[in-house]
Design a protein around this nucleic acid. Sequence first.
DNA 1: AACTACTTCAACCGCACGTAC
DNA 2: CGTACGTGCGGTTGAAGTAGT
Length: 501
Amino acid sequence: MSYTSTEMGSDNESPFTDNGSDCRSRWEGNALKKGPWSSAEDDILVDYVKKHGEGNWNAVQKHTGLFRCGKSCRLRWANHLRPNLKKGAFSQEEEQLIVELHAKMGNRWARMAAHLPGRTDNEIKNYWNTRIKRRLRAGLPLYPPEMHVEVLEWSPEYTESRILGGDRRHQDFLQLGSCESNVFFDSLNFVSDMLPGTSNLADMVSCKTLGNGASSPRYEDFMPLLIPSSKRFRGSESLYPGCSSTIKEEIPSPEHFQNTAPQKISKTCSFLVPCDVDHLPYGNQHSPVMIPDSHTLTDGLVPTSNPSLGAVKLELPSFQYSEATFDQWKKSASPPQSDILDPFDAYIQSPPPLGREDSDCFPNCDTGLLDMLLLEAKIRNNSTNNSLYKSCASTSPSNVVGVSVSQIKSEEFDDSLKSLVHSEISISTQHNADGIPPRQREKERQPVLDITRPDVWLASSWLDHGLGIGKEAGSMSDAIAVFLGDDIGNDYMQMSVGASL
DNA sequence: AACTACTTCAACCGCACGTAC
DNA sequence: CGTACGTGCGGTTGAAGTAGT
């Protein structure tokens, strides 16, 4: 966009450069202005709203002669002109509330704004995108342990949100089930979409370019930030206080990462964010610590000599636990359960143990994504009476989560995927009959297997495996290899082996 | 002082939903 | 039932401001 004018009425632009299709479609011979609003325009808009009330924004231009489209008027009014708007910095209480709400709702800024009188969704969004992210980049925990998670109740709304919540992309994923033969590749696409910083996995597979992919511009994103921009390196010392100074000097090539031991990578790669709990302001090593730039809770048990690995991209969907859920986690080693909560979801949602010595629940939580997906599918296949989950809760969790992809035939995997998709479709259909308006339902529902959540990814050992700090480096590699086929699979396996050496 | 890089935030953009016709 | 319109939401952009060199 171009802010070429700040004076009303001047610099009328072509209607076809104005703000958005809606505005463009309403072009009737008057150029609609865009860019910053002048005080004169503000006065006109305020006057209009006083006379006619809010709404019917597209009539503003007709009634006032204001060269702004309705969309722009609504935004200006909502964000700057409407009464009772709070201006200025957020208070500590507001900041805390934003963090809490974000932990529950994710990037649902408008809903968050409803909890912050006088604040707009845009304000909250900007706040989050700047101050919070800056905090994360500095390696500070996003959700301080002293956060009063009990402030917000385990309300029906949040319960429903937690259970049914989701976003459009989740639904897109479910819809993929209609094309079963492509379910895996579509799932890869889906996963690529949901794992910021990765490129299209299915494209990678189909193009059989994994070996060279990292050096291909098309797949640079697959190794995000491996070729850091100068901007990213600027100030990297302060951003990543634990990083060696070599971070500025060793800009590795993609090939470097294919052949470099993870320990080396950890020293040279800018997206690896040291998380030295000894230096965290919330120094409780057993307190939840966000992996910087993600919403992922770690258990805070980050060896000081072994930097934790931060997420790759800043903007990630939130994990959407209720506050009460989170609170229960703090009190109990096992995840809170409900009759409605899916057993596997409960597993997925469960944060790492607050202290490994304290936890006998799912100690094998570093199993990979595909393992989890497989497990989910298997649970679906056998879940008419939740027997597996019950056994999961009563027996060694490792018996359940330790399923290695390499132990499962590909056709079995395919069947499991189909089963999973069908199960989800069934659930979706069920929700259609519950009387919830489609839009609300769309906003509220969440697939039970939320493999899209970065915390799930990051909690899995996938990244760990890829970077060689995992314990069970076999299963994910096996799985990828199986589905990539011989050529790419071998390439992938070589990469994997190389990374784990 | 000049330049560069980074941050902030107002505004835009595209999409989706609800409603009226 | 299909289409157009009005609205709201979340993501993105880029000018202006700020900080560092």
